[in-house]
Write a protein that binds this DNA or RNA. Structure first.
Lengths: 167, 167
DNA sequence: TTAAACTTTCAAAAATAAATGAAAGTTTAA
DNA sequence: TTAAACTTTCATTTATTTTTGAAAGTTTAA
């Protein structure tokens, strides 16, 4: 396979994977493009390479920066802005975990807490509801905490974790 | 909060969480509904409770069964089919992990392998591409294997894992 | 058999999410 | 200042995903 073909295939695949996990395709594609670029890329180049509009590029770059996984860079003597992606994969995974926890898991936990603490009347139906949502609350809380702990190792956490689990 | 309100809130929240993680809303809602029901529910009741069409209910129930997290049940002397959800959360997490790995991670890994093994010419650009995608391949492979190992504990794996990581 | 009771399928419609592009906003160099 | 070079915003359009509902399919009891 040729370089250009491989690069395109990678960008498409990363985009599709993003969609499947609730991240919009273009956002994932821009991230993919930046990850495999050895130097900062201008918005113009991103638009050209992915065949997307200026607005689309701008909004998704903003979103990626909000996630903390893409950075703006300024080149001396250049008016334009350039962009780079977080390339350290441990760091990338940590940031994605943290953001998803903050934006999605934590709010869901709050609701789970609310609904699991209603006063259950004596019907089996209501008892089961409280029981099941309580268990779910505990489970999600534990999983969320664990993810936090895991990524706290920070440097090469995945490798360290594998060791810890194996032995 | 009243039971009916709490139940509805739970179903809506679970549905929204599903969407954010690439699972269609109705599928997640049906699953939520079944999880908190203490007895099997008919398609009719699901349609009624979620205000959805027969076709929608049928297709999403099929999908949930394909995921292995919802089961068909037959009641003696009843023509209709009833449905229940996997209620054991360890088991639920294991099944979801396995399916997502099989459907999404494994195919992505295959592509990553392909593109990371191209013959890189001596340009810095191509070298960086091969280097970065190789690292990504290793990372994703390791993460995928770890998830496998984690869920292999099977019974109360999350709890056991927490213990193992803490000490 | 057959017909009633039920489920599945899938083309078309509806709903939702994402992308466009032009206007408004911002920055910088002269 | 100001005007050129650039970025952001957001109402509108386009694309994608989901849902509907009616027809086709299946099962069961008589």
């Amino acid at each position: 396979m040729e370089f250009k073909e491989a690069k395109n295939k990678f960008v498409q695949t990363w985009g599709a994977l993003g969609s499947q996990w609730g991240i919009n395709k273009t956002m994932a594609q821009i991230h993919a493009l930046l990850m495999v670029s050895n130097e900062p890329v201008s918005m113009e180049d991103i638009m050209e390479e992915l065949q997307i509009s200026r607005g689309n590029a701008s909004m998704n770059l903003r979103a990626l920066m909000d996630w903390g996984i893409v950075y703006k860079e300024y080149k001396a003597g250049e008016r334009r802005e350039f962009f780079t992606a977080e390339k350290d994969l441990d760091e990338l995974a940590v940031k994605i975990s943290r953001e998803r926890s903050k934006r999605e898991i934590k709010p869901a936990l709050k609701i789970l807490k609310e609904v699991s603490t209603i006063e259950a009347k004596d019907s089996a139906e209501e008892k089961h509801f409280v029981d099941q949502t309580s268990k779910l609350y505990d489970f999600v809380l534990k999983a969320d905490n664990m993810l936090d702990k895991m990524t706290e190792f920070n440097d090469n956490w995945l490798g360290k974790l594998v060791l810890k689990i194996m032995k």
